[in-house]
Design a protein around this nucleic acid. Sequence first.
DNA 1: ACTGACATACCGACTGGTTGGTATGTCAGA
DNA 2: TCTGACATACCAACCAGTCGGTATGTCAGT
Lengths: 214, 214
Amino acid sequence: MIPNRPFRPAPVTARDKLLEAAVKLVRTNGYAATSVDELCREAGVTKGAFFHHFPTKEALGVASAEYWSASTSGFFAAAPYHHHADPVDRVLGYIDFRVALIGGPVEGFSCVAGTMVQEAFRSSAAIRVACEASIMGNCAALEDDIAQAMAQRGVTGTSAASFARHIQAVIQGSFVLAKTQEPAEAAELAREQLGHLRRYFAMLFKEDTEETMQ
Amino acid sequence: MIPNRPFRPAPVTARDKLLEAAVKLVRTNGYAATSVDELCREAGVTKGAFFHHFPTKEALGVASAEYWSASTSGFFAAAPYHHHADPVDRVLGYIDFRVALIGGPVEGFSCVAGTMVQEAFRSSAAIRVACEASIMGNCAALEDDIAQAMAQRGVTGTSAASFARHIQAVIQGSFVLAKTQEPAEAAELAREQLGHLRRYFAMLFKEDTEETMQ
DNA sequence: ACTGACATACCGACTGGTTGGTATGTCAGA
DNA sequence: TCTGACATACCAACCAGTCGGTATGTCAGT
């Protein structure tokens, strides 16, 4: 499961409690179906606190995408797959790390930005842009390793950025498919899909070296 | 663009008009953000007509997933890629056909079932199941061709069903990523992602034959 | 041919609850 | 005394869903 706030103390201010609540409720019920009252109840704060910190519900949506970005980017930056010497191992290590995070009900491993942008891409430009920044920011963190892997194995025909986006696309798609399943089977389906992603990259980067992995 | 009702006359009954409206509005604004009044306005029918044909809004959601399934499955069944002799060409032809359908704003090529299940997977079991049937039904239509392609090229290690699900996962994921973009760039991003999917299958099925495609 | 019972397909005013948002008040700490 | 961080009460708009009514058949019985 991807934690909401992996490297910070428990939320104390009303603002942080509301962001925590937003992540949980948006993942579970979506953005539109989550009311401000529900958010306040979940966070244990009053409506006055809500509108003290956020001018509108939309602003909370934007802030929660940014909050999600900050949480996850910190979490992935500290993950162990970065220590591999071979850039190919770092890329495959990222995928393996993502697979390891998948388990339990979908709302425990799905993506806030992906969920929110599906609903709000047309009705709120601010939320759309915040979700774009979150998802594409995640891509950017992979680009260097992919570029190095491509250079080392002589992979051409597309860009590192495009490959990075593909990783995100498969992850997001696996969440959508997982949501069609009953809770008990959701995680397995999502993991299966990342397996295909891994195979794609393994095939691309296995050219002139056989079992270089350490 | 994937048409809503490709092989049928223009809707005449209030029920069909409401299903048309549901497909359009759910694709654009999502399920929860689409009100019954809005649906009626878009369809040009009254609230009485709505609740005459559907007991609840949820029932319209379920019916629109089924309606979407019926429309798209008929549309794909009639597509020309089925005529290829080589099963590999049929699988790649399906992907190429999907790429050709992508263009214009996201709500013109995105998937109703994928959008709806993201929002309603936890709050409505009936909608979740209807969306599962729609998406997995699309997978089932591909399974035979994939199984034949696997047998012919000696691909092992996973099942035809799993490959079929991967096609759907990448398609759904490409829609999520496309929704993060401005309207002008959305289609290009989605096509790019299906390009990776095509490359994955081309690599898998290119083993012991070089340029068998006709 | 005509009737009356019944069915289908709608119409639109209405309701009770919920929505996002506001106005005003409180109160600890600087 | 003044500010930032809340709390409480409230509001108009909107929500899904209801209900009594109408228009238009259909069809068995006479």
